[in-house]
Design a protein around this nucleic acid. Structure first.
Lengths: 108, 108
DNA sequence: AAATTATGCCGTATATTTGCGTCATATCTA
DNA sequence: TAGATATGACGCAAATATACGGCATAATTT
């Protein structure tokens, strides 16, 4: 199985970003980080109906595609939005929106 | 398990659309439909490295969130982009891009 | 030094996704 | 009517995603 690598690379990249946004918990984390600027895992966990471990896992996924970044501060880790992935995903979102705009008229 | 329903409804809706876009095969199908305007399952299957059954399943998922629509034409089914879901998903994509724009500066 | 705190890593259980073959059905064609 | 064709529904296996508790670790705090 796992046939995703048989597709065009640009499609794979876009799919990866969309997957990162495909869970409400991760969207909530992103929104929280945008509003607060920076915060630690514990802060986010208190905002969500999930355990600390699960929140940590979602953060790792967001880190994996450079959407989120963490800097160690003693015992804590300060998380914030990562500018690298940010630019890329905004591009992907805008491109997709533009692409979909083309299909305004249904042909069947 | 399955805690997605504990989150804000708008986040759930957005996550649903992003999930629909989170597989390269579905992105390829959408692009193909935009380019050709309309086509049958068989046509799409020949473009993708997947079996007919699997392509049919991806089409069902796209239909489930009103991104794609199918009209029966004898033995065949003509698929095309569905204007209903199209408007909604474009909104979601644009909103997300705008939301992410706010986070231009990293705070850690 | 001992207790507290915040986190990462590991293992585990369940749920969902992905991918396919087979069968049934419905429509066209010869 | 018989055969070809296109599709949906069903079931199944493998891979991923989701969610969590427990343990280890490292830095503060007392």
């Amino acid at each position: 199985m796992a046939k995703t690598e048989l597709f065009d690379e640009s499609l794979q990249l876009a799919a990866t970003y969309f997957k990162a946004l495909s869970h409400p918990a991760r969207l909530a984390i992103i929104n929280y980080l945008i509003e607060t600027g920076t915060c630690i895992t514990g802060d986010i966990t208190e905002e969500l109906p999930l355990s600390r471990t699960t929140v940590g896992q979602h953060l790792q996924e967001l880190k994996a595609c450079n959407l989120v970044q963490g800097t160690v501060d003693g015992v804590k880790v300060n998380y914030c939005i990562n500018a690298i992935g940010l630019e890329e995903i905004i591009q992907v979102l805008r491109n997709m929106a533009t692409q979909l705009e083309k299909a305004k008229s249904c042909k069947c």
